[in-house]
Amino acid sequence: MKRNPLAEIMLVLGGLLTTAAYFMTFFWAPPTAYPDGRVDFAQKIFYFHVPVAEASFLVLIFTAYYGIRFLMTRQRIYDTKAKIATEVALFFVLLTMATGILWTKVEWGVWWQWEPRLTTYFILTLAVIGYFVLRNSTEDEERRAVYASAFGILVFINAPISFFITRWLESIHPIVFGGGKGSGLETTMLVTFIIAQVGMLMLGYAFYQLRLREEEFKERVEALKIEIGG
């Protein structure tokens, strides 16, 4: 069984980078302030909320990519890869929701608000959960793979539509990047953010590889059991 050492390397690197970003968040990046001069401590959530959210979108690309690859080639491995990518996406999506809700509570005073971006992210969460419900309720193996691929592609197309509708509908959610005058970050804050983002992506890659290895193990165990039993 060949081992892909990249998974471990990425895991360690990602761990180091995210840990560094943790410290930089609190000891290096300058605090931001409300218009009245009081410190906006809750802004610190940004450094991890946004990397996780962006990682979730990026991982969904792989769901769609492997979905397309599966539909073209009909090789089971691509379906497995798409499934694992979606699993990692779900993990990040749930983390995004959880940290986002905590931020909302601090800044807006409520746990939840039907604000366009929250709404659409909620919809995305439901769609990703729907992906697994669909997998679980389809019995035939090939059918399950085809349906899951198709739905994964649909979810991936739907996500940017949701994203852009939030920029179009009046939004009270902060737009940090490319939002015109007054948005954007100081260099130290940007560096902290980028380190957290890169680290999170590395971790995402490591998670994906580890789960893939587990899935391969499982298949070999099943195959061996059949061989012994038969």
């Binding site: 001069g37 410190v39 401590f41 959530i45 509570k105």
Partner: peptide, 15 residues
């Protein structure tokens, strides 16, 4: 200026 830090801290720590 720092009056917001203590009440906000649990949420940041939580996150």
């Amino acid at each position: 200026i720092y009056s917001t830090v203590i009440p906000q801290a649990p949420y940041i720590i939580g996150a």
